[in-house]
């Protein structure tokens, strides 16, 4: 056992290197910049400080097709700019990893304060229907572990995988035992042949057999069915979550990322479900939720994941939204009182 003191963003870099990443392109943005800083110093990784966020996502798509496992990292404003590229990678079925270290938005918002405002954007940010796999670690050790899994899931699904963090999870320094994680880690090899071997045509247009099919509705229906099934099948290999606390309580708290750590003392009184794979939303939550009278989603936004959970459970649930970049246990406890649950 060797514990190292690491920052969340550094752990993401080390996880990416462990997963076999060979190319990174990015653009500076708080609170994601440390990822660029760290990777710019790595000699055996292709690194480009791109002219903008859009260039960065498109470079990693090109590099992935060229044969390199690739990643980009950003925060909310940049994540918005990358959405078209994420849709392209989804349509062309190119594995890439996109890290979004969330800060308070919309727009430039509060750049140095953390938030969880990009939850819906991570799943539905692109135009058209896409079905991305989204992970959200809540510690430095998990940043390492789930970056590796994000690369694995990208290979498994041949699609862009989103790794969410927040300012706190990205910037916190903690000890992490990466060697212990390495023992259990499986690194998925590439299946996509690098360019220069075939006659494939990767296009953002609807297509079939390497040729555009822009007016064939039946082909599109087949494509979206196949894609949805492919994403679900791949995601099922990565059903990560944590279920803890007083399981005989009548209230289940749902929280993720830094918020899940802030509420962890409440496990003495409540049951807590923490999704690590946020999307596709975990079926396991449906089974667990059956046993509870009250379900409360606690998150740093106006109820983005609450909405998704309600759709999953097909019942009315409650939410506590923590706004303004500050997340305190005392404030959440007060809100629970307001809901009549304390």
């Amino acid at each position: 056992m060797t514990k190292k003191l690491l920052q969340g963003n550094e752990a993401i870099c080390l996880g990416a290197i462990k997963a076999g990443m060979k190319f990174f392109a990015g653009y500076p943005i708080t609170p994601a910049s440390e990822i660029m800083h760290f990777l710019s110093r790595q000699k055996d990784i292709g690194f480009v400080h791109a002219e903008d966020e859009i260039a960065a996502i498109n470079m990693v798509i090109g590099a992935s097709l060229g044969g390199a496992k690739s990643m980009t990292a950003t925060s909310g404003p940049g994540f918005s700019l990358k959405q078209e590229g994420i849709g392209l990678a989804h349509m062309m079925e190119v594995p890439v990893v996109v890290v979004d270290c969330q800060r308070v938005g919309p727009s430039t918002g509060m750049p140095t304060l953390g938030s969880q405002g990009d939850i819906l954007q991570s799943a539905h940010g692109s135009h058209g229907d896409i079905f991305p796999i989204v992970f959200y670690p809540n510690s430095v050790e998990e940043c390492y572990k789930y970056t590796i899994e994000a690369f694995n899931a990208a290979e498994d699904s041949q699609s862009p995988v989103i790794l969410l963090t927040d300012t706190s999870t990205s910037h916190i320094y903690e000890t992490a035992d990466t060697e212990e994680i390495d023992k259990a880690a499986k690194i998925r090899q590439r299946t996509l042949e690098p360019f220069g071997k075939g006659t494939r045509h990767f296009t953002g247009l609807a297509h079939e057999k390497d040729a555009p099919k822009t007016r064939d509705s039946e082909n599109y229906k087949r494509w979206i069915k196949r894609t949805k099934e492919k994403q679900t099948r791949a995601a099922n290999n990565y059903s990560f979550y944590e279920y803890m606390g007083q399981k005989d309580s009548d209230t289940l708290l749902v929280a993720y990322g830094i918020t899940s750590r802030v509420i962890s003392p409440l496990r003495d009184r409540f049951a807590i479900f923490r999704p690590i794979r946020l999307f596709p939303i975990l079926d396991e939550l449906k089974i667990i939720a059956k046993d509870f009278k009250n379900i409360v989603v606690i998150e740093q936004n106006e109820g983005q994941y609450l909405h998704e959970v309600e759709v999953l459970l097909k019942r009315k649930i409650q939410g506590i939204s923590v706004q303004g970049g500050e997340v305190k246990l005392s404030g959440i406890e007060e809100q629970l009182k307001v809901l009549g649950l304390e």
Binding site: G46, A56, N58, M59, G62, G66
Partner: peptide, 10 residues
């Protein structure tokens, strides 16, 4: 940028 990424990887 897609071409640049492709060239750098390959």
């Amino acid at each position: 940028p897609v071409a640049e990424g492709l060239k750098r990887a390959n």
